[in-house]
Design a protein around this nucleic acid. Structure first.
Lengths: 249, 249
DNA sequence: TGAAATTTTGCCGCTTTTTGCATTTTAATC
DNA sequence: GATTAAAATGCAAAAAGCGGCAAAATTTCA
């Protein structure tokens, strides 16, 4: 990786997450921490970020009085996104839906990951587009302004032409009895096509949507391979799902 | 391999992968690294790429990661965008390419316009998506990180299923004798498909690209219906094109 | 066509940049 | 205040850049 390329990536990460850790960057980009430190120093001098102990902060967080506290705190969707991103390995074909949780996953993809991501979600595509090594395939069709994903028969037909390794879905409701449910019929058609096409289905959701129901059914629990929430996998709320045969993370 | 040929190859590689390494190019093309370095230097001076230690990066990459950089001749492009936007009427089906000029047009679309816009350009789609009344159809395929548009046979096939009223293209070079030319072969394939599919072709360009030539041919002048620049239509630079049968605006 | 002029290319020695490692110094945490 | 992690410092190896030069290739022009 070229020096400029590396520094550009660091700036990008800082702008996305408002913080970066030296050791994380070091292992992601696979250079020594000394190099990262020198990069952060240069970027600080250029005013691209603010260097602090252990990493760097974005200018947006300039007025934070205790940056070290901010550096280690993360919200639920970031945690989910990071857990999810770890499942993607080099060379994989990955189908993803839309939604804020998926965006967080996209932002957590390590710099050295080289995979092919397929999506009809415009915000997700924009994120993937910024990644240095990821190949992006866009699912085309009519764009829904609400969900910001492409919807329709062409999109479904296109999804069916792939056989991706993984499928990541942000879900709106999951229940032991009723399975995964959602509110928008058209979006559900896409999700069903994605589930059927993929070898492994991974659902992402914040814990407050667990044990809730929405009007339109997406699929039964047995279609889901992995469920990711911000909770630790031992949490009692998740146990019934584990017992139902889903890998909880 | 001729020098021109070699440099064209390098530009293509940069556009394709967003970066090139000197030593890779050297062994690929089988010339010394000194020659590659001189090539990169020349191409940098011509603005085709950005030379860095160990290789070169594409301009698009630089734009993405250093958004502070001001878009070149923004004001001219705004004028062009406004002229172009006035051509779109309620109920029309409009096909558009990518590029900064098209983005300016997208931003100039009046809020009460209700039309259907079709595009494979992610930045353009993002703009259309924010418009209250416009229907957006996304052309899907593999996403080129350099041009930020979808490229490939699927995209071309999809374009051919439409018969839009208008087609807006941002062009990189136009000349009386050689017609419209461009630098990237894959992008040209898409542009040609768009031109053939559409009932009316409108080309947008800043005046400094008039009477310039790029290596890959897009189409002859007779395919173009309207040419829009930031200049007034009476400007002498535009007269030869008006005489060639093109409506200049 | 063929010779001169020009451009292009590869090589050489030398300088600069980049990077990782070892060591010392500084800062953070409990 | 002891322990630990990160920063700064110095250093050396490797890689890349640079200017000059001469051979090779290409173009120009008589």
């Amino acid at each position: 990786m070229l020096k400029r390329e590396r520094q550009a990536y660091i700036v990008h990460q800082v702008n996305l997450h408002n913080k970066v850790l030296s050791n994380t960057l070091s292992s992601e980009i696979d250079v020594s921490e000394d190099t990262i430190r020198r990069d952060l120093q240069e970027l600080d001098e250029k005013g691209k970020l603010i260097k602090v102990h252990g990493g760097a902060l974005s200018h947006a967080f300039h007025d934070i009085t205790y940056p070290s506290k901010k550096i280690y705190s993360q919200d639920s969707k970031k945690i989910i996104g990071e857990k999810a991103a770890r499942l993607i390995k080099d060379g994989m074909f990955v189908l993803t839906g839309g939604g804020t949780t998926i965006i967080e996953m996209a932002r957590s993809l390590p710099a050295n990951l080289s995979a092919t991501l397929i999506s009809g979600s415009i915000p997700a595509v924009v994120e993937y587009m910024h990644h240095p090594m990821i190949e992006v395939i866009v699912i085309g069709d009519k764009l829904s302004k609400n969900s910001k994903i492409t919807l329709g028969t062409h999109a479904i037909a296109k999804i069916n032409t792939f056989k991706p390794d993984l499928c990541f879905l942000g879900i709106n409701a999951i229940d032991l009895k009723y399975g995964v449910t959602d509110s928008d019929w058209d979006v559900v058609q896409i999700k069903q096509a994605m589930i059927e096409a993929s070898q492994k289905v991974i659902c992402l959701t914040i814990s407050e949507k667990i044990n809730t129901i929405q009007p339109v059914k997406v699929c039964n629990l047995n279609k889901i391979d992995i469920l990711i929430t911000e909770l630790p996998k031992e949490h009692p709320l998740l146990q019934p799902y584990a017992e139902a045969g889903i890998t909880v993370m």
